[in-house]
């Protein structure tokens, strides 16, 4: 069992944990964190696959993952902003109904 195979299995397991969290978690912030854990799993799978031949490291998945990390943080920021807005809307509507 090579280390690349080990890491790709770990990436799949992280993806599974994140997917489970997205479906099951109660709070929106936990869902966002779970999406990020899913992302880490996918990045790990891609980078591990780039190293399946122990002699050659394929730089193309590395570039894709580099792009993906920046996009992931942008998406996280957008989701967190929406979460904060929804939270404040909920709060103000609760205060009005009191």
């Amino acid at each position: 069992m090579t280390s690349a195979l080990l890491y790709s299995m770990a990436g799949l397991a992280l993806f599974a944990i994140g997917f489970f969290g997205v479906v099951v978690a109660s709070h929106v912030m936990r869902k966002i964190l779970a999406l990020n854990v899913m992302g880490v799993g996918i990045f790990m799978f891609l980078i591990a696959l780039a190293k399946r031949n122990p002699l050659v490291v394929d730089p193309l998945p590395h570039a894709l993952v580099l792009t993906g990390i920046v996009i992931a943080v942008a998406g996280t920021a957008l989701a967190l902003n929406l979460m904060v807005r929804i939270h404040h809307m909920d709060q103000s509507s609760q205060e009005q109904s009191k």
């Binding site: 195979l5 780039a50 399946r52 031949n53 050659v56 394929d58 730089p59 193309l60």
Partner: peptide, 15 residues
């Protein structure tokens, strides 16, 4: 993953 025998180098030679 298991069907891959480790001879595949991807696009590394092209790059």
């Amino acid at each position: 993953v298991l069907s891959d025998k480790g001879h595949n180098t991807g696009l590394a030679p092209l790059i």
